[in-house]
Design a protein around this nucleic acid. Structure first.
Lengths: 238, 238
DNA sequence: AATTTTGAATTAATCGATAATATGATTCAA
DNA sequence: TTGAATCATATTATCGATTAATTCAAAATT
C-alpha cells in the first residue's frame, strides 16, 4: 500500500487506468465484487491507492462492456445478474456457435489445427498445476478461454469471434458466482475438451457443434439450479 | 463559446462526460472526425470548452466500442477503416440476420408489427423533412436505425440484437464516409424499406432475409467501390 | 550516411481540490 | 401519522495543476 506505477505487465507499459481496469474486471468476473455492489469512487481510491482519474476511466470502460452499470450523477454499480440474463446469454452463444463452428471447420488450416492442440495441452497443464482449473488461477481461466476460442478461430469473422469472447467471460462470471459458496467447484471434464478438439480437427462439424452447445447449456443449467437453490447473488444491494 | 453545463438532453440530467461522449461518437460516425485522426486531449478541451476528465472518460468509452483506438501513454486515435474491416462487418451482419430474422418473424406479435409500421412511417417522414435522409439529419439517422431494429426486435435475444445495433452504426460510418465527398448521396429507396416491412409483417421469412442481406451487401459494395476510386479516407494520418 | 545520444518541447496521465448533485434525516405543516 | 420542505452529509463530477512519458530535432558518434 505505498507502491507506485509498476505498470508494464503483458503490455510494454500500461497506464494505471489500464491496470486497474484489468483488476476490477477480474474481480467482477470472479465474483470478488458482487453483482449490484455499489462502486464508490472514494472507497476504490483508498482500496487501490490511486487517484480519481484512473479509477473513473476504468469504470467508464467497464460500463461500456456492461460489467458495470453507470447512472449519470449517481455513480457506478457492479452489473446485476439474473436468470433471464443468463438464459439470453447462453442462447446467444449457442446461436453463434451455429454460425461459427461450421465456418471454422471448413476454413481451418494446419496452423489452426495445431493451435487447437497447443491450447488443449495448455489447458490440461493448467488444470494440473492448481487444483481447480478456472476458479482461482487466472492463467488457467485464460487457458480455458483460449481453448474455446481456438475452435472457432478460423471462422474468419473477427467481429463475431470477439463478441463470442465477451460472451464467454460473461458466462464464466455466472459460473464462478454460482460455485462461489461451494466446496467442490464444477470442473469441466478434460475429456470433454479433448473430444471437442478431436472432433474439430477431424472436421466432424455436427459433433463439435453438439459438444459445444451441450457444454454451454449444461453449465448454464447447473448455474441456474444453484441460483434456484441459493438465491441470486447480489440481491442484498439497493 | 463560454457556456456551461447545460447537460440534460434526452436524459434527465446527463453528465458532461456523457454529452461529450455522444457528440464525439456522432462526429466519428458521420465522418466529421476522420479515421486515423489523432485525438489530442488539449485540443479537444479547447474545442469543446471542457476539462480533461469528461473528455478522457468519453474517449475511454469510445475505445471499448472500437470507434477509437487507445494506445497506452500515447493517447487516442479515431479508429481506422479498411476494406477488409468493412467486409468482415458486412459478413457478420448478414450472418446475424440469418439467426435473428427467422426468430423475430416467428415470435413477433401484434405490438411488434405495429412498431414496424410506426418506424417505417417515421423513417419516411424523416426523409421527407430534409433532403438527404441519413447524412445530415441525426434524427433521420436514428429513424433509419430504429426501423432496421424493429424488424429483428422480436427475436428475443438482447445480446445479439444490441450487437446488431453496434454493427449497424459501424456500417453507417462507412456509408457516410464514402459519400462524404459526393454530390449525390446514396439514398436508400424508401420502397425497399416498405417491402421489408410488408414481408416481415406477413411472415415471408425468406423474403425479409433476402431483402436485408441484399440491402447490406449492396450498400457495402457501393462503399467498397467508392473507396477503390477515391482511396480510403484517413490514409493521411500517421 | 547511418545510427545513437541528448535535451527541449509536446503531449499524456494522474493527482488533489473544488463544485455540483444526490441522499437521508429532521423539522414543520396539514 | 403523512407528506412536503429544509438542511447537513455523503458522493459524484469536474477542473486546474503537476508529474510522467513520448516525440522530434539537433548534436555527437560510429
Amino acid at each position: 500500500m505505498g507502491r507506485r506505477n509498476l505498470g508494464d505487465e503483458a503490455n510494454g507499459r500500461a497506464t494505471l487506468a489500464s491496470s486497474i481496469y484489468e483488476q476490477i474486471r477480474d474481480e467482477i468476473v470472479t465474483g470478488a465484487l458482487a453483482p449490484g455492489e455499489k462502486l464508490r469512487i472514494e472507497q476504490l481510491k483508498q482500496r487501490y491507492d490511486l487517484g480519481t482519474s484512473p479509477i473513473r476511466e476504468a469504470l467508464n470502460r467497464l460500463s461500456m462492456e456492461k460489467l458495470v452499470v453507470q447512472f449519470d450523477q449517481r455513480g457506478f454499480v457492479v452489473a446485476p445478474v439474473s436468470q433471464e440474463d443468463l438464459h439470453e446469454l447462453t442462447d446467444a452463444r449457442c446461436s453463434l456457435y451455429g454460425i461459427l463452428i461450421p465456418r471454422s471447420l471448413e476454413q481451418g488450416d494446419t496452423q489452426w489445427e495445431e493451435n487447437i492442440v497447443i491450447c488443449l495441452h495448455r489447458l490440461n497443464r493448467a488444470q494440473w498445476l492448481v487444483g481447480d482449473p478456472a476458479r482461482l488461477n487466472p492463467a488457467a481461466r485464460m487457458a480455458h478461454r483460449d481453448f474455446h476460442r481456438s475452435i472457432i478461430a478460423a471462422a474468419g469473422s473477427p467481429p463475431l469471434v470477439d463478441f463470442m469472447d465477451t460472451l464467454f467471460d460473461f458466462s464464466e462470471r455466472y459460473r464462478l458466482l454460482a460455485q462461489q459458496n461451494r466446496e467442490a467447484p464444477h470442473r469441466p471434464t478434460s475429456n470433454e475438451h479433448a473430444e471437442m478438439a478431436d472432433a474439430a480437427i477431424n472436421r466432424r462439424t455436427n459433433d463439435v457443434l453438439e459438444l459445444c452447445q451441450t457444454h454451454v447449456r449444461r453449465t448454464a443449467a447447473l448455474v441456474d439450479r444453484l441460483f434456484e437453490e441459493q438465491g441470486l447473488p447480489g440481491s442484498n444491494y439497493r
